[in-house]
Design a protein around this nucleic acid. Structure first.
Lengths: 221, 221
DNA sequence: GGCAATTTTTACCATTTGGTAAAGACACGA
DNA sequence: TCGTGTCTTTACCAAATGGTAAAAATTGCC
């Protein structure tokens, strides 16, 4: 049972205390690391990886640039830490999809949760979108390790519902793609949506109604 | 009837030949400008505006960097020229939507054209997506001037079809959003789609089938 | 309080990058 | 073929940017 690669390259010769694992992070360390990640989310989601600068992140976080580099090994590490940390939140609505629940209600619930996330966590949505848009250079491993198994599992669940006649037959993979696309659109393309829906008091509700109708009509057996 | 602002700041004191308008572009000028734009499309779509460098564009175009700056005033001008030039192509499928045609067939034809574009012009799709994702800083005017009127016009057409009972009643604006989202998804999130649809011979046809079903079930009266 | 460990600041650095000046090469009509 | 205007290259530059070294300040434990 070999140690993880990360652990293997750990005892090299750079850590002052070779005690095998990281010590518990101090209170101040926790606070500053999360400050930095919050600032990085703001800046990366707005300008993309290349477009974001450490100075911007530092200023947003209220820390100095060298101080930020005391907590993270570099710009890339901040970015990848953010991405990994967000992965769980991002996948949660799909994890929640319950094979025991009512099929149509489960799908509609999933759509609703994703749409709520687009409204409540637009920065996270744009961060992921930007990363994928550029070919997921820093996230490809996590796509395969984290997303793919979940995707296949839930596709099987949906396929099973269809085989049992509880949902109309469509390709579950494209169904999920279309749920992602339609919901995230409101976060990722907000600049466009805003221009075209200028005088709209509550576009979120309009979107929710529309998407409910869309997927209900598609999937009703 | 005042001259355009652009024209106003034109006779300042920088152009060698104050002949009112640009002269006709020479053969070589046409060739090199389009080379540069082709290279810029490649590089900008892959790395985003900030992530792209003039050196990359120059190398891809097979020209030197100063030579590129002989044809364009700067990085920003290349980018905005690309965007403006692509606007027409991008909007064309929607322009083609015919108020006199069969409603459902017109919508499905539009979906198909957009999906074909996602397959045939993925770089263009990603270029726009990247620009919108970052708040459309260099394109906001064109969104309002070019896209918005067309959007409202076609929404009215669709709404009319629905009022006549030729299509089921849904919000035409969200309908169009969902068409954009679902079709462009295959270009903009190709990195993700590829991971999840790994062993798929012809995912384009699968997508076409799915989307046809989706919008047919939604809109059939 | 004293002291070691942690955290923060100051002062830098090397590279990258958008951009420029000016000389040189080239095209093409008279 | 000559000369003028067009195009291209060479040699730069200033600012921005990711990152580092080491001193200074601070924290927390005995």
């Amino acid at each position: 049972m070999p140690a993880l690669k990360i652990a293997a390259s750990f005892n090299e010769l750079e850590m002052p205390l070779p005690d095998g694992t990281d010590k518990k992070p101090s209170r101040i360390q926790q606070r500053n690391r999360s400050r930095i990640l919050e600032a990085a989310l703001e800046v990366f989601s707005q300008h993309g990886y290349r477009g974001a600068t450490l100075d911007q992140i530092a200023e947003t976080a209220g820390l100095s640039k060298p101080n930020i580099l005391y907590y993270f090994d570099g710009k890339a590490e901040i970015h990848v830490t953010l991405l990994n940390q967000l992965m769980e939140t991002w996948l949660d609505p799909l994890v929640t999809l319950d094979p025991e629940g009512d099929p149509l209600q489960e799908i509609l619930g999933y759509v609703q949760r994703k749409l709520d996330m687009a409204r409540d966590l637009p920065r996270e949505s744009r961060l992921f979108a930007g990363e994928i848009l550029q070919g997921a250079p820093r996230m490809a491993p996590h796509l395969e390790a984290g997303l793919q198994p979940l995707f296949e599992e839930k596709c099987a669940v949906i396929q099973n519902w269809m085989n049992l006649g509880h949902l109309a037959q469509v390709d579950p993979r494209h169904l999920i793609f279309s749920i992602w696309a339609t919901t995230q659109h409101y976060a990722d393309f907000a600049a466009q949506v805003q221009v075209l829906l200028r005088d709209e008091p509550d576009s979120h509700e309009g979107a929710a109604d529309y998407l409910t109708t869309l997927f209900t009509r598609l999937l009703s057996p």
